[in-house]
Design a protein around this nucleic acid. Sequence first.
DNA 1: AGCTCTTATGAATCATTGA
DNA 2: GTCAATGATTCATAAGAGC
Lengths: 266, 266
Amino acid sequence: MTAINTDFYLGDCLEVLTDFDIDSFDLIMTSPPYADRRSKTYGGISPDEYVDWFMPRAKEFLRVLKPFGTFILNIKEQAVNGERHTYVLELILEMKKQGWLWTEEFVWHKKNCYPGKWPNRFRDAWERCLQFNKSKKFNMYQEAVMVPMGDWAEKRLKKLSETDQSRDTSKVGSGFGKNVSNWLDRKMAYPTNVLHLATETGNRKHSAVFPKALPEWFIKLFTKENDWVLDPYAGAGTTCQVAQKLLRNSVGIEILPQYYHTISNG
Amino acid sequence: MTAINTDFYLGDCLEVLTDFDIDSFDLIMTSPPYADRRSKTYGGISPDEYVDWFMPRAKEFLRVLKPFGTFILNIKEQAVNGERHTYVLELILEMKKQGWLWTEEFVWHKKNCYPGKWPNRFRDAWERCLQFNKSKKFNMYQEAVMVPMGDWAEKRLKKLSETDQSRDTSKVGSGFGKNVSNWLDRKMAYPTNVLHLATETGNRKHSAVFPKALPEWFIKLFTKENDWVLDPYAGAGTTCQVAQKLLRNSVGIEILPQYYHTISNG
DNA sequence: AGCTCTTATGAATCATTGA
DNA sequence: GTCAATGATTCATAAGAGC
């Protein structure tokens, strides 16, 4: 049995990552602080300065990502003066100049988005999950995220985790593997680039930035067991928790001591 | 009774629109030919030239749109050499320089998108519907697109009073309009910026992949009866058909004779 | 166990107020 | 004038309590 590492570091990922070798990670999955959001806890980067703030960090990510690895960036621009700000668009263009390939844009449809009513705008119910790569060729394990066919597929996607997983695993170990795979071929379909997930609101201990199902989906899709996952804005540590559960090694970096404390104590 | 106009023009919208006055339209809703898509029918604009091709036309749209009007641009960049092309991002940035406000980006989730699988990519199940305006203030009729509320409200309302409901219903015709509207308010909610619409299959005459529900939603949201709607890339004429059905005047422009013929003959 | 009902809350946005 | 803080608006979800 191979031991799984789950390491946390306190600090700015820009500095912490200098201690890591090139080509260290198979997947970088993160949700950095958005511009002007969480200003109370993170100090707040203004939308106009966001690209300049992010680019040196993106450069480090490029360095520590393996050649066939993937970088998933969960982000969404907010409304400023009645308009959507353009810093995310500019970020994509700048990252391409830096050497990244912008392979895909997944949509995370937030089924339970924040309520509200305004004269000129509806509720914002989606966020971007931008996929960047270093190479046109990269590791992708599509079978790992297949979903049941039919209308209930979407409902099951989020629940696909705990119970179903352990049950399937136990079946595989006891000779049912082939049957399972046959069943999979007939009843399962490849998903699309639209993810339907609800944000987790019920967790009173630490409010997760994104639902576990989000990193879970991308970790399954872009890594295999014993691979290395990095979350440079670990926050409450959701990504690393999921990585550990899925038997992936992971590194989480968080600049805020209170989060770091929460993480380290599990 | 007011007569509703539904006019079609054959030609390039860049030229046809010069005959129209400034401030003519309340809504411009269109799905222009995507770069390199339908190249056989449209002559094929390459992705790298797309912005240069589009900008003079955007300038005309800006001219003929009323001050409080809205421009909805349905578009999606395709994958080129394994990457998403950036011409849509660049288009947004250029249109802002031209004077447009980028108010919102709606997501059209294509529920029954074409099946397919590629080694490094899933099915593309969404498109952008970019909202541009001339002014921070614009006409928006949110009540016209309200949707039934979710389970939470239904259960709560059911529990609230089985008898009160039927009582209110029976009093509809007898002067209790206020109660009915309260009931409506509880039963309906404002939608989000994510649209779940199925593509219409089976229409082999036209290459348009534009379900009627898409222009219908935006026409209801941004215009009222007798307003003027423009579709400068009318294609099979879907937008104008819907506009007519909803008692809006409309102008459709199409450069391809075969489409123009189809449209004019209904 | 399986229901139903209650309740807190989440990367929100805009208008108003005050310095 | 500009800019920051506060209040009002509002819905899907899951945890938890009760039966």
